[in-house]
Each structure stands twice: as structure tokens, then as C-alpha cells.
Design a protein around this nucleic acid. Structure first.
Length: 263
DNA sequence: ATGGTCGTTTCACGA
């Protein structure tokens, strides 16, 4: 089974590229972030015609996550236990959706951006990650044999080599010690990085700003990850970033991360 | 320090 995660930066403006990616890479399950579509706005017709099921969670034009699968979708859960919301608690933020596909629990996560050091959004990001860690640790405490994938845009570069020039991030979010500790806490809860062992280099990125030709010059960041429980980790046979999806006009600013699992 | 480029319910703001 081949799974993937992709911050698509608007599924409505990118649906043709989503369908192209699924077919070109022969993907079974795709987790999407920043769909920027309410559930009722999702362009599902082409996907359903090609045999994909879609589970979405979008409450406004800014947020949105989804799971697209051609191996079935079961037990969809929107949000997770203890997930903090920003601002009015009644206004749910669609940052997490979980679905079981082919026996694997796959989460599509859009970790809060954090904006700037000192911004309350950064505290929110850390709270959100702590809640995710607690909840995800609980899943494995209940049953260590579970195959769980925590995929998505983490908005964290865990290592200095995960950004094109660490000196330029001296006063930025995404690389601060508390954010990196929050990421590591999820790893320590039993979720390994399934991609890095297969592309360990310092110049492997998943995100490149649109401006200043950052993609063409490969000045990017590794901030999208597929983390997996140990039972899932055992099945991994390979992983890579699909840079082709980032190339050319009309691309998202992120590229998909693809992970292959043995049957 | 600023600006660069995308997306959105766009003349503003988030990433």
C-alpha cells in the first residue's frame, strides 16, 4: 500500500494536480492539508468517478484537511480528544481528520503555524501539539500493535539541516527549541519518522516559498512528515518527496511525502 | 529592514 501526505494549498484551485498526482504515483491513500474548502465545497466528482472515497473536514475557506482513499474509508473522526481551538470554541478549526484505510489509522494533521515568536498563536501551536502527543500516546497505550500514521504539515523543522539556511531562521518559528521539543515528544510517544531514513540528506525539503524562486534554487524546508507507530514502521519499504508535484506553474508551495508499505 | 508570491468569500491578510 502506498500512502502520501500533501499540503495542497487549496484543493479547489489544485484538483487537477491532485488527480494527476494520485494516478502518476499510484497512491492508495492521500492525506491533504490546507484544502481551503468547506465540506460542501469539495470537488469530489472527479475523484469518485475514479474510484476514490473522500472524507473531509473543512469549516471555512482558510482551513481544511481530508483523506482520499481507494482502499476504503472507515471510522472517520474529525478532531481529536483535547484538541485546542483558537478563538471562539464554537468555531471549530479543521486541523485533524483520522480515518482507517486498509487497516491503517491515518491522520491528516495541519499543525498551527505559530506565526512569530511571541505571538499567542505560537503558544496555541505548542498546546495543540501537547494535546496531540497525549492523545496519540493513549492510542498506543491501549494497543501497542496499532498501525497509526500521523501525517501532515507539522510547521516544524526538527533539525538545523531541515532549512536551507539556519542563520535566516534565528528569530523565526518552526525551528525554536520548544517547537522541536514538542515534535520530539510525539516521536518519543512511539511515532518514528518514516521518511527521513530513506532520504536522509540535508537538502531534502517538502516546502519552498513561492517567491524568490525558492524551489528552483532548492531553498526550502522539511516540515511535512509521516510519523508511524512501530507496527507501521515495520512495514515501510521506501519513502520520498515527489518534487515533480512542486514544479511548474500552478503548484502548491508544498510537495507530497510518499511512503510505501509492504503488504 | 524590506519584499518577494500565492491563496482566499480580496481593495487585506495569512502562509
Amino acid at each position: 500500500m502506498r500512502i502520501a501526505t500533501w499540503n495542497v494549498n487549496s484543493v479547489r484551485s489544485r484538483i487537477a494536480r491532485v488527480e494527476e498526482f494520485l494516478e502518476r504515483q499510484d497512491v492508495d491513500v492521500l492525506a491533504l492539508q490546507e484544502t481551503k474548502a468547506r465540506d460542501d465545497q469539495w470537488p469530489v466528482m472527479g475523484l469518485e468517478a475514479k474510484g476514490y472515497e473522500v472524507a473531509t473536514y473543512g469549516t471555512n475557506q482558510w482551513n481544511g484537511v481530508a483523506v482520499v482513499s481507494r482502499v476504503g474509508i472507515e471510522d472517520v473522526q474529525r478532531g481529536f480528544a483535547g484538541m485546542p481551538t483558537w478563538g471562539d470554541p464554537a468555531e471549530a478549526e479543521a486541523r485533524a481528520i483520522g480515518a482507517t484505510c486498509g487497516g491503517v489509522r491515518i491522520w491528516s494533521l495541519y499543525v498551527p503555524n505559530g506565526r512569530k515568536v511571541g505571538d499567542p498563536h505560537l503558544a496555541y501551536k505548542l498546546d495543540w501539539l501537547a494535546a496531540l502527543r497525549d492523545t496519540a500516546a493513549g492510542w498506543l497505550a491501549e494497543d501497542p500493535q496499532r498501525q497509526v500514521a500521523l501525517t501532515g504539515d507539522w510547521n516544524i523543522a526538527p533539525r538545523d539541516e531541515d532549512v536551507f539556511d539556519i542563520a535566516q531562521f534565528a528569530k523565526s518559528t518552526h525551528v525554536t527549541p520548544p517547537e522541536r521539543a514538542a515534535f520530539q515528544a510525539v516521536v518519543d510517544a512511539g511515532y518514528a519518522d518514516l521518511h527521513r531514513p530513506y532520504e536522509p540528506g540535508p537538502d531534502v525539503y517538502t516546502y519552498w516559498d513561492y517567491y524568490r524562486q525558492r524551489f528552483e534554487r532548492n531553498r526550502g524546508m522539511r516540515i511535512d512528515f509521516v510519523l508511524g507507530s512501530s507496527e507501521l514502521d515495520k512495514r515501510v519499504t521506501g519513502a520520498f518527496v515527489d518534487r515533480e508535484a512542486r514544479a511548474g506553474t500552478g503548484a502548491s508551495d508544498h510537495a507530497p511525502v510518499v511512503v510505501d508499505l509492504a503488504d
